[in-house]
């Protein structure tokens, strides 16, 4: 998996909960392409029309708080989110994103420095975020250890499969 991305920022505020990322009324959907249609619908109904694969989500604190529904991470991965940078995350969402191979970076203060539409260059291994629009550099907590290993494999299932293949 790539560890460096360049993409446009889509910005969100504090406490973007799972019901905003993926409203409960759609949790009966199971196919990824159906789930993708409702990404961020509760926070911004125009999101799916404007977001392009490779774009980056930037949010304030507690992104993904609330439900365990993996639909929230599935939908953001399915629309092609390159990575999510937030000041902090809800635990279950963070886990789900890593498990699916969707990079999530913690960067205190990030929401005050990045505007919607800014072009960002992000390195998840060093944590360096370059705002190419404003020229500002920000430093997220680099991804290390187990989360990086899972992300590098492209998700927990691939990692387990690779481990098994190595053993045999």
């Amino acid at each position: 998996m790539e560890t460096q991305f360049i993409g446009r920022a889509f910005t969100f505020g504090k406490n973007i909960d799972t019901d905003q990322i993926y409203p409960g009324r759609f949790v009966e959907l199971t196919r990824e392409k159906d789930i993708a249609r409702h990404a961020m619908e509760g926070a911004d109904p125009e999101f799916v029309k404007q977001f392009k694969a490779g774009d980056i989500i930037v949010a304030s604190t507690n992104f993904g708080c609330g439900s365990s529904r993996e639909h929230a991470a599935i939908t953001l991965k399915a629309v092609g989110t390159a990575c999510i940078i937030a000041e902090s995350f809800g635990r279950i969402f963070y886990r789900n994103a890593v498990n699916l191979g969707l990079p999530v970076l913690v960067c205190p203060g990030v929401s005050q420095h990045i505007d919607k539409g800014d072009e960002l260059s992000v390195n998840i291994e060093t944590g360096l975020i370059k705002d190419l629009t404003t020229g500002k550099d920000l430093h997220a907590q680099p991804l290390t250890g187990y989360p990086l290993k899972i992300l590098s494999a492209g998700g927990i299932k691939t990692l387990i499969r690779e481990k098994r293949t190595q053993r045999h």
Binding site: R69, A73, F93, R95, N96, N99, K157
Partner: peptide, 10 residues
């Protein structure tokens, strides 16, 4: 603890 579908699957 609540978990997502992938952790549940494991």
């Amino acid at each position: 603890a609540g978990v997502g579908t992938t952790d549940l699957e494991v």
